[in-house]
C-alpha cells in the first residue's frame, strides 16, 4: 500500500546521497570539471555550451564548478543548522520536560519569547553583529530553528516521565542523568529525527533568503543561495544563472521533504508533524 511513497522516498534518498557525495568529494579536491582550479576566464556570461555545461557567470567563472563548490556550503549549512537546533532543542526540552512545574513554565515562557520575536529580525541582528561568515549564518539559522525541537522533546518527556518503566528505573535507584540519557531520550528521539528532516531543507532555503536580503555569505564564498540571489534578476537575459542554482536547491529541498514525510509515516504514526 505504501509502495508509491517509499519509492519516492528512495529516489529522494538517492538524490541526497549523490549530492552529499559530490559535496564531500569536491571539498577533498576531486576535480569534477576542468575548471575546478581555474575560476576565472575571459568568457563572460556565456550560455551553456559543451565547454561550460552550465554556462558562465559575470566574471567568466564556470557555473557548474561554482554549483559544485556551492554544494559544500549549502549542504553543510543545512546539516549543521539541524545539528545546532537539535543540540540546543534537545537539551532545553529535556531540562524543561524533566524538571517540570515552575522551571518548565519558566522555560516555556522563554520559548514563547523566541516565537514572538520575528525570525527575520533575529537573523538580521545576528547577521549584522557576528558578520557574514559561515559562523554568523549558522548561529542565525540555529537560533530560529531550535524551538520546535525543544517543544517536541519536552512534550515527549512529559508523557514518558510517568510511564511505568521510568518509575521502575527510578525505584531501582537510577540517577536522573541515567534516566534521561538511558530511558527518556532514546524513546523521545524518533519525532526529533523526523523534525530534523524538515529543519535541513528550511535552513537551506533560509540561507538563500538571507543572501537575497544581503546578509548571506561574503564572496568569493558561494552557496546555492548566493548563486540564486545573484542570478535571479537575470531571469530573462541569462536564465542559466538562476535556473541551475534553483534546480539544485529545488532537488535537495524536495528530496528532504519527501524523505521526511515518509519517515513520519513509517516511523511512528503518533508523532506526525
Amino acid at each position: 500500500m505504501m509502495k508509491n511513497r517509499t519509492y519516492l522516498a528512495k529516489i529522494a534518498g538517492c538524490i541526497i546521497f549523490i549530492l552529499c557525495l559530490i559535496a564531500i568529494l569536491s571539498s577533498f579536491g576531486f576535480p569534477f570539471t576542468p575548471y575546478a582550479f581555474d575560476q576565472t576566464s575571459e568568457h563572460i556570461l556565456e550560455a551553456p555550451s559543451a565547454q561550460h555545461l552550465f554556462g558562465t557567470d559575470e566574471l567568466g567563472r564556470d557555473l557548474l564548478t561554482r554549483i559544485i563548490y556551492g554544494s559544500q556550503l549549502s549542504i553543510s549549512i543545512g546539516f549543521l543548522t539541524a545539528l545546532i537546533a537539535s543540540i540546543v532543542g534537545i537539551t532545553y526540552g529535556a531540562i524543561a520536560g524533566f524538571a517540570g512545574d515552575r522551571i518548565d513554565t519558566f522555560m516555556m515562557r522563554g520559548i514563547d519569547l523566541f516565537y514572538a520575536l520575528p525570525d527575520l529580525l533575529i537573523m538580521i541582528l545576528v547577521g549584522i553583529i557576528i558578520g557574514r561568515g559561515t559562523l554568523g549564518i549558522l548561529l542565525a539559522l540555529g537560533l530560529v530553528s531550535w524551538m520546535g525541537t525543544a517543544r517536541l522533546v519536552r512534550a515527549q518527556f512529559l508523557t514518558l516521565k510517568n510511564e511505568e518503566f521510568i518509575e521502575a528505573a527510578r525505584a531501582c535507584g537510577a540517577s536522573s542523568w541515567t534516566i534521561i540519557t538511558r530511558h527518556l531520550l532514546p524513546n523521545a528521539l524518533s519525532p526529533v529525527i523526523v523534525s530534523l528532516t524538515f529543519i535541513i531543507p528550511s535552513a537551506i532555503l533560509a540561507e538563500s533568503t538571507l543572501s537575497f536580503i544581503g546578509l548571506g555569505l561574503s564572496p568569493p564564498a558561494c552557496s546555492w543561495g548566493t548563486l540564486a540571489s545573484e542570478g535571479w534578476r537575470a531571469l530573462r537575459t541569462e536564465p542559466h544563472l538562476i535556473l541551475w542554482p534553483s534546480l539544485f536547491i529545488f532537488m535537495v529541498v524536495l528530496s528532504f521533504n519527501l524523505l521526511g514525510d515518509t519517515l513520519a509515516d513509517t516511523m511512528d504514526p503518533k508523532t506526525r508533524v
Partner: peptide, 19 residues
Amino acid sequence: MQDELKRNLNIHVDLLNQE
C-alpha cells in the same frame, strides 16, 4: 580587483564584506 591583483602582482587580498 581581487582577480587583477592576483594576476598582475601575484598577491592575494581577502575580501571582507560588511553591512
